[in-house]
Design a protein around this nucleic acid. Sequence first.
DNA 1: AAATACCCCAACCGCAATTGG
DNA 2: CCCAATTGCGGTTGGGGTATT
Length: 388
Amino acid sequence: MGRHSCCYKQKLRKGLWSPEEDEKLLRHITKYGHGCWSSVPKQAGLQRCGKSCRLRWINYLRPDLKRGTFSQEEENLIVELHAVLGNRWSQIAAQLPGRTDNEIKNLWNSCLKKRLRQKGIDPVTHKPLSEVENNGEENANKSREKAPDILLSNELNLLKSESSKSDAASSYEQRTTSSISPKAYAMEMEGSCNKEFFIDRFIQPSDLMGNFPLQMSYANTENDCLPNDSNTSSNHWFNQTGKSFDMNSDQFHFNPTTTSTTMFLPNSFCCNNSLDIPSDNVSTEMRTSSSSTLNLHNNNFSSWGGLMENHTEEAKWENNNSNYFQNPILMLASESLCNEIKPPLMNFVPDSFGGILPHTKQEQEQSQTTSNIFSKDIQKLREAFGDM
DNA sequence: AAATACCCCAACCGCAATTGG
DNA sequence: CCCAATTGCGGTTGGGGTATT
């Protein structure tokens, strides 16, 4: 165990990926899905280990990545999430559609940590440095660096720490430009840490439409590991259920009111009732295997985000508000509020992996059953807050 | 202009968890 | 249940770019 077996094999390339390698991997995954990662490099004609391919896809090639610099809102969110979750980068990344754990980790280590220190806040404990020093750094580091689950409720209480008070002026100024509302902020200042606090602080209307996490299984179960099937020129894409669908098929011009397919699409992509994908944008480009239509090495995915964006006012609103929590905290809180919300339009919201989840009421219910995978976290929250 | 220091980030490494035969 | 293969995660590293001397 430990080191991936394929890494022992000779002649495997390491280091930066070349544009040619990127194109090979992208083309392969676009066409067949990744299936078993360890078989991807061979099938894609790459001299890489599967682990390296997976990482490259997740951190760079995935079409739903946002890329570019982090917004102030995103940075604020990361800091707040870090205060609760610690160095659980993947969980933090799950709340920031289009961002990878690696990206967030790098941002934290290179910028955010430093910025907090400059503001007199210990980036490990999120308490004032002076307080941390008084209490002894040892204990603080022990309890925080990699927060055990059992500390979760305690972590939540950190949100009401004195540090917030001492940094109130600058901090509130910052937060007024972020997602936190004055009410939530005031409660935080008052040391409140109850369900209203979380609902007000984290939940946006889009969450209440039933934006629950789903377990992503986009492996192409029918066609995994079958790149040699030359009879199928189809480009099978991945969906939520693990079944593939054919990007060459006319059905790709799909109507979300009749399908429950989840696809990888730019995370900014949202729509109301029906979604007609222009024939000469994404699907066409992804079908074009002979020429590199995606300018990956200029970090340019405008052909995805640009063309795919729905520019209606409502879609813009959705875009602006779909980046919020889809985690157990919100799920728990959402459960108690779902009934108060109007019957949803057909909403497409990014899941934690950047896919798009169409949510009818029925699908919300299905989603909630899937949410059982978070039952452990929910249990902890119940312990922290009591039943809601 | 050259040398050095610093910063950022892509990619690697190793471990733990999960999966499946 | 066992064990090997695989996946996912977080910590770390190293190289390239930029700033400073």
